[in-house]
Design a protein around this nucleic acid. Structure first.
Lengths: 366, 366
DNA sequence: TTGTATGCGTTATCAT
DNA sequence: ATGATAACGCATACAA
């Protein structure tokens, strides 16, 4: 009965079997142009019988649209990107779009390759977590060529792209303020702090002090450092550079080292703020290995909520980013651009939630 | 200098600028056919100057190959699929392939839609975690049409597809044997146990007893139940159906309920075996909320290693599936088929690692 | 409402 | 080694 052989069945054969031209067959099946419903039924039946499936390559070649969006994630394996991706996938699927996925490993060379491949595959739009906030010619080119770009997690100055982020600086300030409110004055920070104009932490502190830093186009970890500085200033506490753990490369190993260093300090911090998921896991490992009791010996607050934080005893307070919502928003933005929306670029700053748990107490010596 | 306007530059314009035919330009750029290196250089320069990028739709239309593989995952958001995807992405990228990603939510209707879309987009191969082990006509059709399929995490009987799994039954038997060796006789199991020929646990136990179950083509959670039964039999312990927590739908809520039920049992189990990551997180939550001390009050062993298991005190023993390796293997298999490999179908069973940690002790009452 | 003819951008075929 | 030309499968302009 069913003919589903090696030979692909094209619209030509459907047309032949239905006794109409290919143009008519196309109209009947593709839902464009006009066609009598009698004919439409006949064509559809023929298509059914032959097991016809349109070749979207051919369609895309002529329409100039592929109904596919490209996604460049830093590391698909991390819960951060996985959740964002989930949001993107849900929204795009509902709109009948496919998603072409690539990893950049946060490296600009890989990102360049990825974007090129995606564009050669003629994606209709691009969602990307850019690896480099200054080198964005490839994104600029995409936009100029009519391929809308939506940035996620980070924004780039002077780029005509929409962006979906959270207000890292404010969320971070809020976190650290909770610690100062509890009485802490020596608060350690464990953060990536890579990639800021090639500058180091001291340079950054100076630049912030002189007010010449645009926090909205920093990498997230620098924004979080900014919020940390804000909170200390609000509380009248001077910033001690020794308490800023700069992990540099994004690795668990580096995070463990910096955490260890902070907790080995002669005048050890009484609270720790870890600036992302990877840092938090590493910090927690060290804390456990040192047999420190939270919050008796050390208060802890984390950016990014990981599942274990809610069922440890006590739970670990955390900033919960609305990750799938970010992915959904990014997808909606890019679809809207593809749809022809020409409005001004949006820079969405979604509000993270704060999960208050039992990891914050007054410092030990008080 | 750089012309990167709205108008796309095609091979025709490159050919014109280089003073050759489109055929020659194609050969010079595409790396097929013959062309003098003098000409090749001239064409390449012209391409460079114009910022030429090939249109992979057009190429795919004529070659019949898109250098794209489709992936159907259950839920991209879960660490399980995220890690597998990472492995797939690494291998495919190295081979110059893109990946088109979709979610099935483990629902056959969504899977059918997804596979159809992917095939219309003319993927060269498919990697899929099938939602239904009996309804596989769409996969059969793909294979017949020359689109190789690689199953992941689950195998389907009588389907000419390669598969990459782990030996769930054996790994599970090993886990439970560690518990019986420690002296446990009442061991609770928390597992999904959905989708087995529409049958329930009692039916399954009967079928196993009569030896008419092919464990290699069961859903993983049923394979793990099989291994649980194996271990009990080896230890001469009768299976108590009350100790088998069947979550049914794949949800944290359901898992919490079943765990709660098991731990509320009048003759409470002295050890728990949770059959996957979601179950483990749920079980851990309940255990924590009941203030049970591991392993003093309860021994625990988990299938799937989650990051918190290694830094809780004590750590939680777990079966570590080689997830990225599974993804890599699946990708290599599908690429090899695309490459023309016609050998017999492979059914890879990768060996999981066991992470021995402090969550196993002798039962309390001993 | 339908059919004819043309084109999308590339590779394949076959002369030369 | 190169060029003219025909595909690939579909959508679109235009004529009928």
């Amino acid at each position: 009965m069913n003919d589903k052989r090696q030979d692909k069945v094209t619209i030509t054969e459907v047309a032949k079997r239905a006794g109409v031209s290919t143009a008519t067959a196309g109209r009947a099946l593709g839902g464009y142009g006009y066609s009598r419903k009698e004919i439409k039924a006949r064509v559809k039946q023929a298509a059914e019988e032959l097991g016809y499936r349109p070749n979207l390559l051919a369609r895309g070649l002529i329409t100039g649209k592929t109904k596919t969006i490209g996604v460049v994630a830093g590391d698909i394996q991390s819960p951060f990107y996985a959740s964002i991706l989930r949001g993107v996938a849900d929204v795009t699927r509902a709109a009948g779009f496919g998603i072409l996925l690539t990893n950049s490993d946060e490296r600009i060379e890989l990102e360049l390759e990825a974007v090129q491949l995606l564009r050669e595959k003629q994606i209709d739009g691009l969602i990307i977590a850019p690896s480099d906030l200054s080198d964005s010619a490839h994104l600029q080119a995409a936009i100029l060529d009519g391929c809308p770009v939506v940035l996620i997690d980070r924004a780039i100055r002077n780029l005509a792209a929409d962006a979906v982020c959270v207000d890292n600086r404010e969320a971070s300030r809020d976190c650290v303020a909770r610690l100062t409110a509890a009485g802490h004055r020596r608060i350690g920070l464990v953060a990536e702090l890579e990639r800021w104009n090639g500058g180091n932490v001291a340079d950054f502190l100076a630049a912030v002090a002189s007010g010449r830093v645009d926090s909205s186009t920093l990498f997230p970890s620098w924004q979080r450092l900014y919020g940390y500085i804000d909170a200390l200033r609000d509380a009248g506490i001077p910033v001690d550079p020794d308490l800023i753990g700069r992990v540099g490369l994004y690795s668990g190993e580096g995070a463990r080292k910096e955490t260890q260093r902070l907790l080995d300090l002669p005048n050890r911090p009484t609270a720790l703020f870890s600036a992302d998921g990877l840092m938090s896991a590493a910090a927690m490992g060290i804390i456990t290995s040192l047999d420190l009791q939270i919050p008796r010996d050390l208060s802890l607050i984390c950016f990014d909520d990981l599942d274990w934080m809610s069922f440890l005893k006590p739970g670990i307070a955390a900033v919960v980013q609305p990750l799938t919502e970010m992915g959904e928003a990014a997808a909606r933005l890019v679809l809207s651009r593809i749809d022809g929306n020409e409005g001004p670029n949006q820079r969405l700053a979604l509000r993270p939630r704060f999960a208050e748990r039992g990891s914050i107490a007054a410092p030990p010596s008080l």
